[in-house]
């Protein structure tokens, strides 16, 4: 397996890890990390593809993704603070008042 495929597998693997974090952990902070992990997995796959296609374009997109990930985590944390103030905890098992 040349490195390209290994790296693809690695990025897919990281992506699934992030998704699993989102699924299994109830702590919103960990879920936030999960999303960040998924975004970084995407960066990795971008880089590997651009290396395979030996174009610079792929790597260029990584910067956009990074900035967006940053913006996203900023907003995510502020929502987290808001949840803590209202629910007194950041566990998602509390946040089920909207239902039906």
């Amino acid at each position: 397996m040349e490195t390209g495929n290994v790296l693809h597998l690695l990025s897919a693997y990281l992506f699934c890890l992030g998704l699993l974090a989102l699924l299994l952990r109830r702590n919103t902070l960990i879920m936030l990390m999960g999303i960040e992990l998924m975004l970084n997995a995407v960066n990795l796959s971008f880089v590997t593809f651009s290396r395979e296609l030996n174009q610079l374009n792929g790597q260029l997109q990584v910067f956009f993704v990074i900035t967006l990930a940053a913006a996203e985590s900023a907003i995510g944390l502020s929502i987290l603070v808001n949840i803590y103030r209202n629910f007194g905890s950041i566990k998602t098992d509390r946040t089920t008042s909207l239902r039906g």
């Binding site: 929502i79 808001n82 103030r85 629910f87 909207l98």
Partner: peptide
């Protein structure tokens, strides 16, 4: 807050 969290995640 809860709606925001759900929508965000």
């Amino acid at each position: 807050a809860e709606a925001g969290l759900k929508y965000f995640l």
